[in-house]
Computed example of a mutant assay.
Amino acid sequence: MDIPPTPIKSLIRAKEIAEEKLDYVYLGNVEGQEYRNTYCPNCKEEVISRNYNVVQINLDGKKCSNCGQEIKVIL
């Protein structure tokens, strides 16, 4: 198929729109580390770092290791 990739600006805008209603929105398979990670909805601390796989988890059990907010993700 001769369909070009979706422009990164469009993906970022879609992420911003989704974040208005959802807490854990990230983009996969994109350049820019800040778009691939999961952040605590309370303190905005990075709780899951991704490259193309999960590379670091900054949780204390199911809670943000910074503020204690419950992080509702399944790993």
Rank of each mutant, 00 (worst) to 15 (best):
M1Q: 09
D2N: 15
D2L: 14
D2F: 12
D2W: 09
I3S: 09
P4C: 13
P5N: 11
P5D: 12
T6W: 03
T6Y: 02
P7Q: 14
P7H: 10
I8A: 12
K9N: 09
K9Q: 10
S10W: 04
L11N: 07
I12G: 02
I12C: 01
I12R: 04
R13W: 09
R13V: 11
A14E: 09
K15G: 02
E16P: 00
I17S: 01
I17M: 04
A18D: 06
A18G: 07
E19L: 02
E19Q: 05
K21A: 05
K21N: 10
L22V: 10
D23H: 05
D23I: 02
D23V: 03
D23A: 07
Y24R: 15
Y24V: 14
V25T: 01
V25K: 00
Y26Q: 08
Y26F: 15
L27W: 04
L27Q: 05
N29G: 13
V30N: 03
G32P: 07
G32K: 13
Q33T: 07
Q33G: 04
Q33E: 15
Q33N: 13
E34W: 04
E34V: 00
Y35T: 12
R36Q: 11
C40D: 10
C40M: 10
P41S: 05
N42E: 00
E46N: 05
E46T: 07
I48T: 02
S49L: 13
S49D: 13
R50W: 03
N51I: 02
N51W: 00
N53L: 06
V54T: 00
V55R: 02
I57R: 15
L59E: 11
L59Q: 13
D60M: 12
D60K: 08
G61D: 02
G61T: 01
K62D: 05
K62P: 02
K62L: 02
K62Q: 07
K63N: 11
K63T: 10
C64L: 09
C64G: 07
C64Y: 04
S65C: 12
S65E: 15
N66C: 11
C67H: 06
C67M: 05
G68I: 11
G68H: 06
Q69G: 09
E70S: 00
I71W: 05
I71R: 12
K72T: 14
K72N: 14
K72C: 14
K72F: 09
V73R: 04
I74L: 15
I74C: 14
I74G: 15
I74Y: 08
L75D: 04
L75T: 10
L75N: 06
